Amino acid sequence: ALLAYVPRVPPTALPGKVTATTFALEMPCCVFDQDTNASDAVWLVVAFANASDTFRNPPSRADVPPYERLPTTHSYMTLETVATAYSCSAPSTAVLRVGGDTACGGQGGRDPCNGPLPSPGPYRVKFLAMGCHGPKAETRWSDPILLRRATSLTAIDPTPKRRGSDVVIITCILTSLGAALAVAVLGAVGTVVWGSLCRQDLGTSAFAHRSYRTHHIPPALPQPLPPGCRCSPPGLGCFAPRPPGPCPGK
């Protein structure tokens, strides 16, 4: 059965969606539910765009073209998956990665290899459901998918491009203006610092030459004692002498 589904690269932004050796495909969810059962498998057919019209579906799994024959047969089949993995009820990953297995190229074709694509293409792909007795359903071919081209080392010019005279003149003018601005800024900063140092020096000199005159306090003169007083030992003050008492009788 030919289904109306057309495989495509996801239209949304995706890191590594198309590289020099791989590309991403949307999952064919809910596409084979009506035409397959649990024992069937779904394959991805990859072919060069100019060889897709001549591709013939293999009658059995033993006749599946392997990845290693891509240079001669211009097509191969890979990503063998049970049909139930693409059912509407099955949880699925976001995308399929074509060409993402770098370690399967030397296994002799025992299992379907999903090796890196050898050239930019373009390629066309389709999904093919196969049962025990051969193909059961298939999708339409995708639009041509062109991979990114790696930049060749010979295409890189090792010599830098010469700058025009206008660019050189503008560069010289900007350099001169930058130098003049730097000198002006340094001069202004130096003037401010020098003025600050001078003010500090003047303040210090004025303080050093400033004199202070103290008030002269004359020494205290001794005060005369009041009449009839005589000095006692220091700290006891003055007292008046007592008149002598009468002599005791004999």
Rank of each mutant, 00 (worst) to 15 (best):
A184Q: 11
A90N: 10
V82P: 09
E26K: 02
P243R: 11
C172G: 06
L146N: 08
H133W: 01
A47C: 04
P58V: 06
H209Y: 12
C104W: 04
S152L: 08
H216Y: 14
R140K: 15
L117M: 07
V31F: 03
N50Q: 14
P160N: 02
P144C: 04
P15K: 11
S232V: 07
K136V: 15
T175H: 02
R110A: 11
D143C: 04
A85T: 10
L147R: 05
S211L: 11
A129R: 01
V193G: 09
P15R: 12
A38H: 12
P226L: 14
P227M: 06
F55T: 08
G235Q: 08
G99Y: 00
A188P: 05
Y123W: 03
K136H: 02
A208M: 10
T93F: 08
D53T: 14
A90V: 04
P224Q: 09
L202A: 14
L186T: 13
C88I: 09
R140L: 13
M130F: 00
L117P: 00
P144T: 07
S142T: 11
P118C: 02
P66A: 07
I170G: 07
A90W: 10
F23Q: 06
A47H: 05
P91K: 11
V82C: 00
H74C: 05
K17V: 09
D166I: 11
S52H: 12
P244T: 13
L117T: 03
Y86H: 08
G237M: 09
L96V: 05
V9N: 02
C172S: 10
T78W: 00
D53H: 10
E138M: 10
F207S: 12
P233K: 12
I217M: 04
G99L: 03
I217G: 01
G235A: 03
D35E: 12
T22V: 00
T159P: 00
Q223R: 13
T54A: 15
A62I: 02
L186Q: 09
A13P: 06
L2Q: 15
R124C: 07
L225I: 12
S232T: 12
A103I: 09
T72G: 03
D33V: 15
V42S: 04
S39Y: 10
A150E: 09
L70N: 01
P112S: 01
L197G: 05
E26A: 06
P158G: 03
G190E: 05
D63N: 11
R163D: 07
L44S: 06
A208L: 13
L2N: 10
R163C: 05
P66D: 04
P226Y: 05
T72S: 10
D53F: 01
C198G: 06
I173H: 00
V82K: 11
V189D: 07
G195K: 13
T21K: 04
P219V: 10
M77F: 02
L96M: 14
K161S: 08
D35N: 09
L177T: 13
R213Y: 11
A150H: 00
